[in-house]
Design a protein around this nucleic acid. Structure first.
Lengths: 211, 211
DNA sequence: TGTACATCAGTGAACGCGCGTTCACTGATGTAC
DNA sequence: TGTACATCAGTGAACGCGCGTTCACTGATGTAC
């Protein structure tokens, strides 16, 4: 509910001050990405999509790369939420459930996923929140690994298993779309099954503790 | 040895006709990538680096994307050669040897590696030569898998193991550089050891045939 | 409750830049006779 | 062996474009008194 004004304006007229342009810009960026892909993600395009002038974003972000960082961070948050939701449904919270959810997110938001890792590469890593944060993705993987039988006391081993799983999921996410794999995907009855098969060859409880 | 000309030119004067500009452009692109990164890889920059006018490349490539495709293909060839060389040294031709060589290539040529996969994503897959070709990378992985104990008769299973390994190597290659992992890398005594640890958790003979 | 004023968050025009691509051209090469 | 000519592989100027960023500005908001 906004304050009423003395003179009625055109119904959709945005007030001069936006209210939460920072957030609006990030949402606009996601729409641009989905609609036009990562190449089209310019600061100007985002401003255009949000309905503001090209100079407006500079009141909320230092420069373009600062905006990209925020977009990537929002993406990693969304990824974490997706995995969380998948785990909530699967009572056993299996690694493969999480892996499939991970890859699905990447496949459903390919351009955003691309930006997330492009930014990470430039920033020498993913957001700290994702890696170390309490509700972050890595923590969830850790817990699933422990449930799968990895000794939680051996910290180095546990971490290596998590990183190994995450890297695999990332590699799969980037490559499932390759045309060469499509016949096999059909044979297996869909992308999710294909991903399960790949993940199954990577994370399988029996050998996890033998290292 | 070039034909001598009646009037002596400045020593480095390139003849009007280049001879093999197509190849020279690809090499120039690799230099640009190494020196300035993937963002700087414009058609004009490549022409500049090769010492020709911006219009010259159009006699050898349909457009920019055609040039990029050729660069990526050359990159995949070089990757294949690197793996081949590593296998030649290691008499057992272990998976981990190949994996480490793969990741080393990606780390030594980060910008080229990026372009290789960017192009692959746009082209819906890596070059056929790499995937299906006789001396291509996938074939080498196949053979190593067979040596490691995967039943060569079960074609689907064999292929899934190869894809799984390749995806993992790719994921690792993209993420080893992340700052979060650096302490662990030091602890393990270097990047190659870290990569070996990760790969060891992914490809380990005992369970390969149990599927 | 009103008023003066600082601050915030927009505008829109302008800047210089490098890009991909096209064009009419020209120099060099190779082939037919 | 020489010459005419088609073809090939370059040049360099020009095009229009969208970009990131800056600037002086202005409208709206909130605070002090």
């Amino acid at each position: 509910m906004t304050k009423s004004v003395a003179v009625a304006e055109a119904p959709e007229a945005r007030p001069y001050h936006h209210g939460d342009l920072r957030r609006a810009l990030i949402l606009a960026a996601e729409r641009v990405l989905e609609r036009e892909g990562p190449q089209a993600l310019s600061l100007r395009a985002v401003a255009r999509e949000a309905g503001v002038s090209p100079a407006a974003p500079y009141h909320h972000f230092k420069d373009k790369s600062d905006l990209l960082t925020a977009i990537a961070e929002a993406g990693f948050d969304a990824l974490g939420d997706t995995i969380k939701a998948a785990v909530a449904v699967d009572s056993e919270a299996k690694m493969s459930t999480m892996g499939v959810a991970y890859v699905r997110f990447a496949r459903d938001n390919p351009a955003l996923y691309r930006v997330m890792y492009d930014v990470s590469r430039n920033a020498d890593g993913m957001p700290d929140k994702t890696h170390d944060g309490e509700g972050g993705g890595f923590r969830m993987v850790e817990q699933a690994m422990i449930r799968a039988g990895v000794d939680p006391g051996d910290d180095l081993n546990l971490k290596l298993w998590c990183i190994s799983a995450w890297c695999s999921a990332h590699g799969i996410a980037e490559m499932v779309g390759f045309a060469q794999f499509q016949p096999m995907i059909e044979e297996l009855g869909g992308e999710d099954r294909f991903v399960e098969e790949l993940l199954g060859r990577i994370c399988h409880a029996p050998s996890m503790d033998t290292h």
